[in-house]
């Protein structure tokens, strides 16, 4: 456990190390929010109140909070692991007394905490205060945080699985790009789900991606019954387990290959 805490601490420090990085990340996120704002204001320009059952404020909040969640939960795990595999450094993991899967997720968690504290929450506060979004302050905030954490775990485990698959696929970078754009598109983080044609919507609801973005936003903005909230969290937990198992499968494959061929 202490080993893992050291990892979190180190990734936090190295994050603080680079001047201005934090500043530009925040600025970038703010700009993103403004772009979403103006783009959707233009989209709603000629309509009286609602498009596809969403008011402008609802659509904007939904998209800007999704965008912030994307910033918070994104990791570079897939990138790191596949680079390690390609350069052959992956043998090193056999020498460390830590589990690669847990270790990488924990390291990403350090970055995640940093982003939640310094980018995510300020950005969400900014959205709520500047654009006067009505939010209920209650137990739903707690649910929101838990849900974002679950989203992070889903995202990190997907990334781990993608990175680890580089071993058999010899191409995780291409895969990463595809994955990123698919997740963004089918999670409704670029265009809200109600805007999609009905058949596409039903496909989206089956996929895990909407649960990474739609669930936390839903928990933040809409009053839900306690039971309903817990149910949504359970679905997220289900997806976490699914991707953990997938990631472990690829990981086992790497270990077997490594111990046989020696890298």
């Amino acid at each position: 456990m202490r080993g893992y805490i050291a990892i979190i601490r180190n990734s936090l420090i190295s994050y603080l190390f680079f001047r201005a990085e934090f500043f530009f990340r925040t600025l970038g996120n703010l700009l993103q929010i403004f772009i979403v704002f103006y783009l959707w204001k233009a989209i709603y320009e000629n309509s009286t109140s609602e498009l596809n059952g969403l008011t402008f404020l609802q659509a904007f909040t939904y998209l800007s909070v999704s965008g912030t969640i994307f910033v918070m939960i994104g990791t570079m795990i897939d990138w790191e692991i596949s680079l390690n595999i390609m350069h052959g450094d992956i043998v090193m993991i056999l020498y460390l007394p830590l589990d690669l899967h847990i270790q990488t997720i924990v390291r990403a968690f350090g970055v995640f905490i940093f982003r939640v504290l310094f980018s995510g929450l300020p950005a969400i506060l900014f959205i709520i205060l500047v654009f006067k979004v009505p939010v209920a302050f209650g137990i739903n905030l707690l649910f929101f945080l838990v849900s974002v954490f679950f989203s992070f775990l889903i995202s990190a485990n997907i990334d781990f699985a993608i990175g680890a698959s580089a071993f058999s696929f010899e191409s995780a970078l291409g895969l990463k790009l595809i994955k990123d754009s698919i997740i963004l598109f089918f999670s409704g983080a670029i265009v809200p789900i109600p805007f999609f044609p009905k058949p596409v919507q039903s496909v989206i609801m089956i996929l895990p991606f909407q649960s990474m973005y739609y669930t936390p936003v839903n928990l933040l903005l809409n009053r839900q019954s306690m039971l309903n909230s817990l149910l949504l969290l359970c679905i997220q937990a289900g997806w976490i387990i699914f991707f953990v198992i997938l990631g472990r499968m690829f990981y086992r494959k790497i270990l077997v290959k490594l111990t046989i061929s020696g890298g």
Binding site: F169, E170, S171, L173, G174, L175, L177, I178
Partner: peptide
């Protein structure tokens, strides 16, 4: 790297 080449285009 055929797979990589292909996935690059596909991506």
């Amino acid at each position: 790297y055929k797979v990589d080449f292909f996935f690059g285009f596909l991506g």
